[in-house]
């Protein structure tokens, strides 16, 4: 968007400008930027039992990434997190895009009602969503099996959340169910911004609505698709609540649903017999920060810049 830059010279209003900026800048710096930087600093320190915290260089990183006790857990949670992200990219975002495409068809009735209803799960707490699905998928209640029976697939039903092989995928699908609303909302908004004459011209030329969507609308909203992808990435590598609510801090069975967020929590606060360790916790957080930063930089420099060139 082309803005005319700021207009008024601040020298005529120094005091007001400082007073306007100070509250937000101070709270944001003290409770967000300082803690982020301080966490990175803490990751270079360790506290020997009973002693003062001392600088240990990269020791904590060596422990997490190379110590046999830690590295297996770390890489397990990293790859689980990648799978979690992959399911969102392959299922959540395509469904969101498709639904947004359908909702933006011309002369669609009940458009607003559909949209409001479909976004509803996104508004709920992740914890609540986790419990809702835990109940529905519980073999004790059996309503999940009954529902599958309606479409004749009852034989497929199993204790999905309890089995090592299927728990992570099931949780990913629960998360997808909740968060489809985000790509749906953002891409729908982007589709509405496309000028009508572009679409009308193609329709007059005999293109079907599906062709128009695929060849005209979708390429135009690719920057939004890229933004949704990076939001998904950041959200997924920062996820915690769902796994914690459904599986607890141990992310069972046998750590099969452990992701970076639950690993961070356990390292920081401890669990069962293992004591919490703020310094190792800060190290896990710093590694998460690096992963997220890598994703964001990739988006900013490799994807957004390339896409921007084709924007209207």
């Amino acid at each position: 968007m082309a803005h005319s830059g700021p207009m008024t010279d601040w020298r005529k209003a120094k005091l007001p400008v400082i007073a306007f900026l100070a509250p937000a800048t101070i709270i944001y710096t003290v409770f967000m930027i300082y803690p982020l930087l301080d966490s990175i600093r803490l990751s270079f320190y360790a506290t020997p039992s009973g002693g003062e915290a001392a600088f240990v260089g990269l020791d904590n990183y060596r422990t997490i990434l190379a110590d046999p006790d830690w590295s297996e857990t770390f890489w397990n949670s990293f790859w689980n997190n990648m799978k979690f992200f992959a399911v969102h990219m392959l299922i959540q975002n395509p469904i969101g895009i498709a639904l947004a495409g359908i909702l933006s068809l011309p002369r669609l009735r009940f458009r607003n009602t559909y949209r409001t209803m479909m976004i509803m799960p996104t508004m709920l707490s992740v914890v609540i969503v986790g419990f809702i699905w835990q109940l529905i998928l519980s073999p004790v209640w059996g309503v999940g099996a009954d529902l599958l029976d309606i479409i004749g697939l009852k034989s497929l039903f199993g204790p999905w959340l309890g089995k090592e092989g299927s728990a992570l995928i099931t949780l990913s699908f629960i998360s997808v169910w909740q968060w489809v609303g985000i790509p749906l909302m953002l891409i729908y908004a982007a589709l509405l911004a496309i000028p009508d004459d572009l679409v009308d011209a193609a329709i007059v030329d005999g293109a079907s609505h599906f062709e128009v969507f695929l060849h005209i609308k979708l390429p135009l909203v690719l920057p939004t698709v890229a933004m949704v992808s990076i939001l998904t990435f950041v959200g997924n590598f920062n996820a915690f609540d769902l796994i914690y609510a459904v599986k607890g801090a141990l992310a069972g069975p046998n750590f099969s649903t452990d992701i970076m967020g639950t690993l961070f929590y356990r390292t920081f606060f401890g669990y069962q017999l293992q004591l919490g360790n703020p310094h190792l916790g800060a190290t896990v957080a710093s590694l998460m920060f690096l992963i997220i930063l890598a994703g964001v930089l990739f988006y900013l420099f490799a994807i957004q810049r390339r896409l921007a060139r084709y924007q209207l």
Partner: peptide, 30 residues
């Protein structure tokens, strides 16, 4: 940020935008 022209204005805007992408949870220990 939008009304006054002052040195470092753009930089401050970018600084305040970091938090859109970086989750505050990562600073939890601190």
């Amino acid at each position: 940020l939008s009304e006054y022209k002052f040195p470092g204005g753009t930089a401050l805007g970018l600084y305040l935008a970091i938090g859109i992408m970086v989750p505050i949870r990562l600073g939890s220990v601190s």
